[in-house]
Design a protein around this nucleic acid. Structure first.
Lengths: 198, 198
DNA sequence: CCTACCGATCGGTAGG
DNA sequence: CCTACCGATCGGTAGG
């Protein structure tokens, strides 16, 4: 009945597992993340790791959640102080570009990688990835609509179209950084964003 | 010394292995492609499959090569008849969008997936993927420069910038189709391309 | 949280 | 092209 470790210790272990998992999954992918390797890295047994999550799939969902928190803190929150509409849209894009430029996740954008890994499958992990992208795209659209409403963007600007194109810019940037280690790509991305946001 | 199968038969088997490999790797990834599954699918033994390539890595390189041939036939060749410059650039983008729309590879763009799978690694597969993207981007740039030269695009248009943005558009399209099964995304992509190409 | 296992599957080899 | 293996590793479980 009584736990071998205190609640605080167990929480600390859980956090340590998740932090390591995010780092590994960022470079190896959510499927490339293995319990055995995690256990070795953390100096634990496999069952010790698995005990915190129950199954690999539950671990993957927890990792996705943790990574989404990081993204929120790195991209959404820095843009919150900016005025709603165009200023915030600009701040969002700049934070997004900076997040990729600084390599917040060592393997590049966690979610783009996860999307490619799971888009051909079914199940809760795929659904969670899709829900994240849906939420982010909707957020971009909302901010774009607001920018049109307050007159920062020309009336008749298509918010769907704008969100689609901005997503394309950050995807191209992620690709250029990760595959080509291209240091000039961030400048191209900034110019592309500027051209779209007045 | 004498082969168990004729040269023609061996070539046919090799082709069958590669065709199946391209289909599997398109959905499961180049790393998710396994010799055992391939052998099962083809009614062969594992060593029978491996005998044609020697190692999994060599198979992966051959699969990449085969997929690049398909891409060439689906995207570059249809655009060749178009006039150099803007018309050909437009034809290229349309062929690229159509290739994604028709789902030529069942798992979406083979190369974007491979790029994400291998961008954190070293070795010949990563290098081959990077070389493919380099070549395609250079080809887009070249066509863009030509379009500027013949006056189809405004003087001072940055070919690097244009190639970067067009790549972003097709990446966003690939993502929308594969993860969201979004049937409207192709229209967004076409509008984005049109806005960039006069 | 551990040890000690399970069956399945991985890439690859020996030998024919 | 086959059978028959190899050592390693996979996710997961039993039992404590």
């Amino acid at each position: 009945m009584s736990p071998r470790r205190s609640v605080a210790e167990a929480l600390g272990t859980r956090t340590a597992i998740l932090d390591r998992s995010v780092a590994v999954a960022s470079t190896e992918g959510l499927e490339g993340l293995t319990i055995g390797r995690l256990a070795l890295d953390l100096g634990m047994s496999k069952s010790g790791v698995l005990g915190h999550f129950g199954s690999k799939e539950t671990l993957q969902l927890a990792v996705l959640d943790r990574a989404a928190e990081v993204f929120r803190a790195e991209v959404w929150e820095p843009a919150q102080p900016a005025q709603p509409g165009l200023p915030r849209l600009r701040a969002l894009c700049e934070a997004w570009i900076s997040y990729l430029e600084r390599g917040v996740f060592p393997g590049g954008c966690f979610f783009v990688a996860a999307a490619h890994e799971f888009d051909g499958r079914k199940g809760p992990v795929r659904d969670a990835v899709a829900a994240l992208f849906d939420a982010w795209r909707e957020r971009l659209r909302k901010e774009a609509r607001r920018a049109v409403k307050v007159g920062d963007l020309p009336a008749g600007t298509d918010a769907d179209q704008l969100a689609f194109e901005l997503l394309g810019v950050v995807m191209a940037l992620n690709h250029a950084i990760q595959l080509h280690h291209d240091p000039e790509a961030a400048a191209l991305a900034r110019r592309a964003v500027r051209a779209r946001l007045i």
